[in-house]
Design a binder for these strands. Structure first.
Lengths: 150, 150
DNA sequence: CCTTGACTTTGAGCGCGCTCAAAGATGTAC
DNA sequence: GTACATCTTTGAGCGCGCTCAAAGTCAAGG
């Protein structure tokens, strides 16, 4: 068909995935059969790139392949499926919002625990001034104490 | 040993996981062999719960089991491993920060695309006033146009 | 002509993190 | 006594999302 466009390799690089994954996505219907050069090699267009970027973005935020397949199918059917597709995106966006909250909580917990470790390290430095025998372990607190923070 | 403490079932509920997963975590060394009632059933303490909550939090933010195992091993060795453990947590926290950025970008992209879908739906409503034949599809824009947003 | 390299296809394999099946022990209720 | 629920163990199975192996085609370079 066409000899212009991105090779599978360069498209994979541009989108931060492997050529394997691009072929896999085409196999499972996430990407429509893409244009080919005269030798049968895939040639990706800019429109393909935009779509693949979108796919990557959804995957990177944990949308299951199944749901992406459903979305891709609806997309093939045209604007009449707008509402359905919008629902998918809204649901996923809500999931993302929840994920962000969870990540922020974990981030805060880690800040707390890391500060606690710094304290422990400080105490060790005081209790063992200029002493470096790794066998001598200070039992400053129970193994579980740090976990009672979160 | 003891007959007080949480059953595996209640602990699973408290921590938002299944009893299967709790046993699995114990098998792979994420949880130290826990106390037992006289009949051999597991009994979890509050200290266990704090640790399990922490495990759950790390898993929920995509820390691999392998890394959690490493952390758990170091924890068993006591305060001498503080620095190493802190490094694990700091690395994971950095990963979380990156994840949050990625999620926020995806969230913004979805806001944009959802708005676009609303426009399309509005146009359909105008072009087909009070007409509800699902076969009549308005080809308002190419299938790929929406993807060129991101 | 022959090698090299980038691609093609199909189908199989893999790592992760559970998840479950099977068979058995124990405690409570009727 | 006997049903029922809840737990125990071990080892196998599974769903997801790739990832790769094998064998083949084609074009360019030496």
């Amino acid at each position: 068909m066409q000899n212009s466009g991105y090779t599978i390799r360069s498209m994979a690089e541009r989108c931060g995935m492997t050529a394997h994954t691009l072929r896999y996505y085409e196999r499972v219907g996430l990407i429509q059969p893409v244009g080919r050069a005269h030798n049968g090699h895939r040639r990706y267009s800019d429109a393909d790139e935009a779509w693949i970027h979108f796919l990557h973005c959804m995957r990177a935020t944990s949308m299951p392949i199944r749901e992406m397949q459903r979305y891709a199918e609806l997309r093939e059917l045209g604007d009449a499926t707008s509402l359905e597709r919008r629902k998918i995106l809204e649901d996923h966006q809500a999931g993302i919002a929840a994920q962000i909250v969870e990540l922020q909580q974990a981030h805060a917990l880690l800040t707390h625990k890391i500060a606690n470790y710094k304290k422990i390290e400080e105490r060790i430095r005081i209790d063992r001034p200029a002493l470096h025998a790794p066998e001598v372990v200070c039992e400053l607190e129970s193994a579980g104490e740090l976990e009672s923070v979160g």
